[in-house]
């Protein structure tokens, strides 16, 4: 089985890109789709209805969504294999810019909306820098100048990035993404690792404790003076 992990900020067009990819993959493969979100998500129901493929979602609730994704990825792979799928598509919630959900073995796709401002690629840290492919959506809505600058900024973050400009609604440009997807090899579940260090200290803030001040927390804490990270607890 092959693994695609799609990340990107909310409303960038992640699901629309996923939809185009699924449409192509289904011509000769079986696909399972998994969505991680925080409070509500509808993408799994929409895609199940549209393509009749196995879909699933998980709500992260008080836990950080990328953290949830990392925790459940093993189970999700087992689920997709049990479905007899050739591809598992994991779509992230796309909120936190400090970590990235991409793993070794799979393809990391970041979806960026061209209308989000030319400096956006620079602001998104590992969500951009650790991806293999950057899909730029909504390109028909911005000026030529901004389109070129947007691309330059992505290259500034990652020189080797494969950039695919796509009008995801029409599907133009999807063939270049499919070329990369077609060249993927199968994953080895035992070898999968996160690409980046996830700054996901499982602290008491992560799990929903609302108190302020480091004195009230366990896990990775930080004081104002001597701003090093400390670990408190077992």
């Amino acid at each position: 089985m092959k693994l695609l992990i799609i990340a990107g900020p909310p409303s960038a067009g992640k699901t629309t890109v996923a939809r185009q990819v699924i449409r192509h993959l289904l011509l000769k493969s079986k696909v399972s789709y998994f969505k991680i979100d925080v409070v509500r998500a509808f993408e799994d129901e929409e895609l199940k209805k549209e393509f009749g493929i196995p879909t699933r979602k998980v709500y992260s609730g008080d836990l950080c969504p990328d953290h949830t994704g990392i925790m459940v990825l093993g189970d999700a792979i087992d689920w997709a294999e049990k479905n007899g799928s050739d591809f598992l598509i994991m779509e992230s919630a796309g909120l936190c810019l400090r970590c990235s959900p991409y793993t070794t073995e799979g393809l990391g796709i970041v979806v960026l909306s061209a209308i989000s401002g030319t400096n956006t690629p620079l602001k998104m840290g590992p969500m951009v820098s650790l991806a293999d492919v950057a899909v730029v959506t909504k390109i028909d809505l911005i000026s030529q100048a901004e389109r070129e600058v947007f691309r330059e900024k992505i290259k500034e973050v990652s020189k080797s990035m494969d950039i695919v400009e796509m009008n995801a609604v029409q599907g133009t440009g999807v063939q270049y993404l499919m070329r990369t997807i077609d060249s993927l090899s199968d994953i080895d579940k035992d070898k999968i690792e996160l690409r980046g260090m996830a700054p996901l200290g499982v602290c008491t803030v992560c799990i929903g404790k609302k108190d302020i001040g480091w004195q009230n927390h366990f896990g990775v804490i930080r004081k104002l003076d001597g701003a090093d990270y400390l670990y408190r607890g077992d």
């Binding site: 028909d140 809505l141 911005i142 000026s143 901004e146 389109r147 070129e148 691309r151």
Partner: peptide
């Protein structure tokens, strides 16, 4: 087709906006 700075075509439509 893929790199807008190499593309020999500039397209300006009713939807094209300068957002900066």
């Amino acid at each position: 087709v893929r790199d807008p700075s190499k593309k020999p075509i500039a397209s300006i439509t009713q939807n094209t906006k300068c957002l900066a």
